[in-house]
Amino acid sequence: MSEPDTPSPAKIVVSGFRHFFETADGPLQATDKIDLAIRAGEFVTLVGPSGCGKTTLLKALAGFIRPTEGHILCDGKPVRGPSPERGVVFQELAILPWRTVRRNIGHGLEIARVPRSERERTVTRLIELTGLSGFEERYPHELSGGMRQRVAVARTWAANPEVILMDEPFAAVDAITRLTLQEELARLCAATAKTVFFITHSVDEAVFLGDRVLVMTRRPGRIKAVIDVPGRAAGRDWESFKVDVAMQAIVEQVLRLVREERGAVAPAALASSRRENGLGA
């Protein structure tokens, strides 16, 4: 799984990651022995059944939680807390409703005390890149769901992190908008050479965006399979992706792997997975 002979060095290394949550009924195991290496510039997607520990892994990568067991290294240094080097895009709306689009996108730069003129330049470039031109002075509630997520993505990109962690960022967006956002994200990633770790429920999305797709088992989750996706996502669009036989074969393969896990989820496990989400927050 971690390949010592890869050409590009590992940006993120996860070894022996196991995590437990304290609950009223004692400790609850969220993940089981995850080993993982993500190369610099790679787009890794992660699919798995609900409550398998995907978000737990992402929160540990971000530095929001400390692993119960195991290590997480970023550039060879242990992750000890959140850092602007690792940007996060959340599923739920995490942009601030009392800030305009422009002020939301520039927030990370404001925190980093980037001079105003430079900040404005970066923000303007990202507003153009994410198709938000003309909406700079709007508040989030004046935007559609898709545009709000564009703002969230742009805010993370503006801070220029080397690693970007995304937790089902397009799950709450309508299906048609989602297709556009996915294509835009693929282009944005290619243009900016970021290392991306992307969680999703959607097998199509995972294969469409990923250089590699990781499949997780049900909880306590571990990496069940790693599937390489040939070619770069940057050039992909949904129309050709849907008729690409090789791609669809990968989609089917991943789908089969995920379905095996989904079918095995007992109702009790689902109920406690909901609890886990609350605790993981």
Partner: peptide, 18 residues
């Protein structure tokens, strides 16, 4: 206040005061 607001800002490097 949704926790995502504070998590997002912390990942942007925000201090407690911020």
């Amino acid at each position: 206040i949704p926790e995502a607001y504070t998590l997002a800002l912390r990942s942007l490097g925000a201090s407690r005061l911020r």
